[in-house]
């Protein structure tokens, strides 16, 4: 099927002797929003880092937008350019202003003229409501603002898929909402999203599917309503009872 933008089959990954991901099968259709949850150490982050090959998998296959990720994928940069990623620690470039953070990759990777890149950046910064901070440096912004900037930076590459790796875990409770709002808006605009998060409210609001992982395996995968209403496995029930 052509609208399956991500296809993961029988994927296994080891860190040394330790198997972090076991027999992962996952298909994501275009414009779907997937939330991945689970206890810490369950391999959620590793899974989405495999999707843009920040981590290498050892067995099985990952196909992103028709390209299989293997050790000899020559144009891995091209695939990464199509997959935006937002990190727990923001990972903004501290030596560049907010605007330059957003324009750096479009100018140098996509060879966009500087003027166009800046217009695009301002446009995306406005969407996450920090266009007025464009000329400050990351160190001068609050955590929530930095994370929204990170979202804008990823969007400036006009990716087909957005990956979020616990985007709100390093934030103060007050700032979580502003970041989640930005993500909700993005979801409403129709972006394909895979979000690792513990924010169940967010999952209920935007997710099409929820995946529950434990010990490197996908324990449960269900439609959002179904997931929260009738979780099947005991492990999921336990997790939900603790987190809700």
């Amino acid at each position: 099927m052509s609208d399956k933008i991500i296809q993961i089959t029988e994927m296994n990954k080891w860190f040394g002797d330790f198997q972090v991901l076991k027999n992962i099968n996952l298909e994501v259709e275009k414009n779907k929003k997937i939330v991945v949850c689970g206890p810490s150490g369950s391999g959620k982050s590793t899974l989405i880092r495999c999707i843009n090959r920040l981590e290498e998998h050892q067995e099985g296959s990952i196909i992103v937008d028709g390209n299989e990720l293997t050790a000899d994928t020559k144009d891995i940069e091209k695939i990464r350019a199509e997959v935006g990623m937002v990190f727990q620690q923001f990972n903004l470039f501290p030596h560049l202003s907010i605007l330059d953070n957003c324009t750096l990759a479009p100018i140098w990777v996509k060879k966009m003229p500087k003027k166009d890149a800046e217009d695009l950046a301002i446009q995306h910064l406005e969407k996450v409501q920090i266009a007025d901070q464009a000329h400050k440096y990351p160190g001068q912004l609050s955590g929530g603002q930095q994370q929204r900037c990170a979202i804008a930076r990823a969007l400036c590459m006009e990716p087909k898929i957005m990956l979020f790796d616990e985007p709100t875990s390093a934030l103060d409770p007050e700032m979580i909402k502003e970041v989640l709002d930005a993500m909700v808006n993005l979801a409403k605009a129709g972006m394909t999203m895979i979000v690792v998060t513990h924010e169940m409210g967010f999952a209920k609001e935007v997710a099409d599917e929820v995946i529950f992982m434990d010990e490197g395996m996908i324990v449960e995968k269900a439609e959002t309503k179904e997931f929260f209403a009738n979780p099947k496995s005991d492990r999921t029930k336990l997790f939900l009872s603790q987190i809700l």
């Binding site: 880092r49 843009n52 920040l54 940069e77 091209k78 990464r80 350019a81 199509e82 997959v83 935006g84 990623m85 990190f87 620690q89 923001f90 990972n91 903004l92 470039f93 501290p94 030596h95 750096l104 990759a105 140098w108 990777v109 996509k110 990170a150 930076r153 990823a154 590459m157």
Partner: peptide, 30 residues
């Protein structure tokens, strides 16, 4: 430099040289 800087640069589609020239070295040299 934290690993996150490498991750962020890679996730934006930069190759080895672009990543080092634009992101890593300016910070490291500073």
């Amino acid at each position: 430099l934290p690993r996150g800087q490498y991750d962020a640069a890679k996730s934006l589609g930069m190759g080895y040289w672009k990543m080092h020239i634009l992101v890593i070295l300016p910070q490291a040299l500073k």
